[in-house]
Amino acid sequence: MEHFAIWVAAFLTMGIISFLYKDNAWYKLSEAIFVGISAGYWFVTLFWDNIYGKFWVGRGDDAMLYIGAFLGLLMLMRLVPKVGWISRWPLAFIVGATAGFYLINYFSSNVMRQVEDTIMPLLGTDYSATTYDMIGNIVIAVGTFSGLVYFFFSKEHKGVFGGTAKVGIFFLMITFGASFGYTVMSRMSLLIGRLDFLFGDWLGMIK
C-alpha cells in the first residue's frame, strides 16, 4: 500500500513540475486533484476545529459562540434571494472589526514603536560605538527619514524634496535586495527537498 502511495506522490510531483515546460493534461489532472482534495481538506479541518471543537468539546455554553453562529447564519441568507441583503450585516461587522483592530494595532506597532526605536544617539552611548556602528546609526536615521519622504503624497518629487525622495528609493531598493537575497537560498533548499523525494524515496537512487 505504501509503495503505491509513493508512486501516487511521485506522479503528482512530476505533474506539477511538468508545468514549467508548458500547460498539459498531466498538470491539469494534478491541479484538479489538488483543488478538490485541498478544498475538502480545509473544510473538514475547519469543521472539527471551529464547530465540533468549540461548540461540543470546548466552551459549549459560551454566549459568544452563539453570537458567532448567529452571524454565520445571517451570512447564509445569501442563499435566499429575497433576504440576501441581510448577509451584508455580518460582512459589515467583519469589515468594521478588521478596520478597528488593525487601525489601533498597526498604529501602535508600526508607527509608535518604529519611531521610538529610531531615536538613538548617532555616536553610540558614551562614545562606545565603533566607526562602523556610527556609520550604521547615521544610515538608519537618514534612511528612515528619506524613506518617509518618498511616501509623502502632498508634494511633488522635485528639487531638494525630490532628491531626498531619491535617496529614500535607494534605501528601499537595498531593503528589497536584502530580502530577495535572503530568500533565494531557502527556495533552493525546497527544490532540493523535492528532488530528494523523487530520487531517494521513490526511485531509491539516493540512500
Binding site: 468594521g96 488593525y102 519611531v115 550604521g136 538608519i140 528612515t144 531593503t175 528589497f176
Partner: peptide, 26 residues
C-alpha cells in the same frame, strides 16, 4: 543598517496608511 532603515520607513508608512484607510471604512 540600510535594510533596517528601509523596513522602518515602509512600516511607518503602512501603519499610517492603515489608519487612514480604516478611518475611511469606519
Amino acid at each position: 543598517s540600510p535594510n533596517l532603515a528601509g523596513q522602518r520607513a515602509i512600516m511607518i508608512g503602512i501603519g499610517l496608511g492603515v489608519v487612514s484607510m480604516s478611518l475611511r471604512l469606519i
